[in-house]
Design a protein around this nucleic acid. Structure first.
Length: 332
DNA sequence: AATCGTAGCAACCGCCCTTAC
DNA sequence: AGTAAGGGCGGTTGCTACGAT
């Protein structure tokens, strides 16, 4: 499938058409002159020139005017930049390594496309989302794996009968090996190759950006914390990851295990953002160890965020919680 | 060869949440 | 506390390629 025609080749929409009326919900689009729809090459050039001069930091609402009277809202400029004009975007088809990494990260993070994209250099969240929806999702379905849960479908031959205590372990291990071998289209069995290879490792210098901070939530008034999961298809836990990914791990994730940190490591009366950020980092490193094996986890590769729970809700029953002081967490 | 129908998917919209002030 | 702006993500649109007729 050829890519959509370049923006400049599409008939430009004027604001007089009903389809290009300003968004009611976008306060920056209330000016009736603003254009919507496909970008023209002239608009792209204006925005590109501006971004090269001033970078993508600052007030997006000022960008259209500053870029040379672009008749676009700031948000539209931002999206155009992030999803199309950014010079570090790879475009083109996804590699097997990228496929594997996306599947793994999706199993870990769910539909958190921006976080997943943050670990895959040169890809935008939208691109990954589209790729997942139309490619990887279907690929997994063909293999009898539910792309949302990463578990075998109920009527799949992979969904083997399981005992009460070991069902998830068997299912996950099985589905993972199937995915691993499925990443080549020729159907040949292949060993899982870590996506974190020297040639494909993500940008190691990338810090945990501020946008991920809200994924790290903690309510000091609450004795338990749970993962915000309103749009998350699955509450995944460390043990799930271990099972699913079937990797070597040095972490004891038996049902009784937990990581405990004494109360004196907590600072009384403070929001423990820093502490929890560190904890998140630690947990994520552990996740990476689970995912990729110890030797693949580099301190240079900063982890994606780890989510903690919303205040007031609870970790699932039987979860291998992680306890910090009087707080308990789990990772999904 | 021309036309029609359909699948695939890039690009975009719009709602909603979070963050900053 | 209220408001504006930034940002994430689900869903939709519309263009292109390709097979069927």
């Amino acid at each position: 499938m050829a890519p959509r025609a370049p923006a400049g080749s599409s008939p430009s929409l004027s604001c007089s058409s009903s389809s290009s009326s300003p968004s009611a919900s976008c306060t920056c689009c209330n000016e009736s002159q603003l254009r919507r729809g496909p970008w023209t090459s002239e608009e792209d050039a204006l925005l590109l020139r501006h971004m090269k001069l001033y970078g993508d930091r600052g007030n997006w609402r000022k960008v259209p005017k500053a870029a040379g009277c672009l008749l676009r809202c700031g948000k539209s400029c931002r999206l155009r930049w992030l999803n199309y004009l950014r010079p570090d975007l790879k475009r083109g088809s996804f590699s097997e390594d990228e496929d594997a990494l996306i599947i793994k990260l999706h199993s870990l993070l769910g539909n958190r496309w921006s976080i997943i994209a943050g670990r895959i250099p040169g890809r935008s969240d939208n691109e990954i989302k589209n790729y997942w929806n139309f490619h990887l999702g279907k690929k997994l379905l063909k293999l009898g794996i539910n792309p949302k849960t990463h578990k075998p479908l109920a009527n799949s031959p992979m969904a083997e009968p399981t005992s009460k205590s070991r069902s998830s372990k068997f299912c996950h291990s099985h589905s993972f090996s199937s995915i691993s071998s499925a990443l080549t289209d020729d159907g040949s069995a292949n060993e899982f190759k870590s996506p974190i290879s020297k040639s494909s490792s993500p940008d190691c210098s990338r810090p945990i950006d501020s946008k991920n901070k809200h994924d790290l939530k903690h309510d000091p008034t609450s004795s338990s914390t749970t993962v915000p999961g309103k749009d998350h298809p699955r509450e995944t836990h460390i043990t799930d990851h271990q099972d699913y990914l079937g990797s070597v791990t040095s972490i004891d994730t038996s049902e009784e295990s937990s990581i405990e940190i004494s109360d004196d490591q907590m600072v009384p009366g403070q929001h423990h953002d820093h502490f929890f950020a560190n904890a998140a980092h630690e947990l994520e490193l552990q996740s990476q160890m689970i995912m990729f094996g110890m030797d693949q986890v580099s301190s240079l590769w900063l982890p994606p965020s780890v989510d903690y729970s919303e205040p007031g809700s609870h970790a699932p029953q039987g979860d291998n919680g992680i306890i910090f002081g009087s707080e308990s967490f789990y990772v999904r």
